[in-house]
Structures are given as C-alpha cells and as structure tokens.
C-alpha cells in the first residue's frame, strides 16, 4: 500500500462528519497513535483507516467512549492473532515439504489428503 504523509487537516477532510476535538481526544486516549513531528501530527494510512473505523464505531454503531477501549483492545488482539497466523503460514510454506503442506491443508479443511 502506498505511503503518503497525512496531516491532521487531511484526516479531517477525508472523513465525513468528523470533528477536530473528537480526533484530538482519540489521540490523547492513544486510540490513534500518529507520529509526532515538529510541524504537528503525522498520520499513516493505517492511522487514517483506524480513525475512520473509530468514527464509524461511534457514529454508526453507537459504541460509546467508555466502551471503546474494550472494543479496540479486543480488535487489536484479533489482528495480532491473524498477523501471527499469517507468519506461521509463511513459515510453514517456507519450511514444510509439499507433502506435508497438502496433508495439513487436508487436515485443516476436513478433506481427504491429496
């Protein structure tokens, strides 16, 4: 994914209906963690996507701000797990013989070994 430098103004413009004080508070709560630069916050693409998600959670799904840390905490754990599973899959892909990979796939999907 392309990397570009995103300022807080770009974030505000990119998301419909988001208000600056809300975003400031989310940063203060460390729900969003942009890098700090002398010129102000610098956001990455994942920060933007996360701000958009939090905005959706608040406005579409009415997750209130007391509950937000729980939601984000669980979400972060799920993505940690999924990244690790990807790593595990890569490690297996790089080390296991084709026979073993085929047998693992068959076992995990409940099918017959090839």
């Amino acid at each position: 994914m392309m990397t570009r430098t995103l300022t807080i103004d770009i974030i505000i413009r990119a998301i419909d209906g988001i208000k600056r004080p809300d975003l400031d508070r989310w940063i203060e709560n460390q729900w969003v963690r942009p890098d700090a630069a002398p010129t102000g916050y610098v956001f990455t693409e994942i920060d933007l996507a996360r701000v958009r998600l939090i905005h959706e959670l608040v406005h579409e799904f009415q997750v209130n701000e007391d509950t937000m840390p729980i939601v984000l905490g669980l979400l972060d754990q799920i993505y940690d797990l999924r990244r690790r599973l990807h790593q595990l899959g890569d490690a297996i892909g790089q080390t296991a013989s084709p026979d073993i990979r085929a047998e693992m796939i068959a076992r995990l999907t409940g099918g017959e070994a090839a």
Partner: peptide, 9 residues
C-alpha cells in the same frame, strides 16, 4: 491491520 503495518496497533 492484517499486514505488518498492523503491528503499529
């Protein structure tokens, strides 16, 4: 979040 980028959070 699913890629290495997600490590940020």
């Amino acid at each position: 979040a699913e890629t290495a980028t997600g490590q940020r959070y």
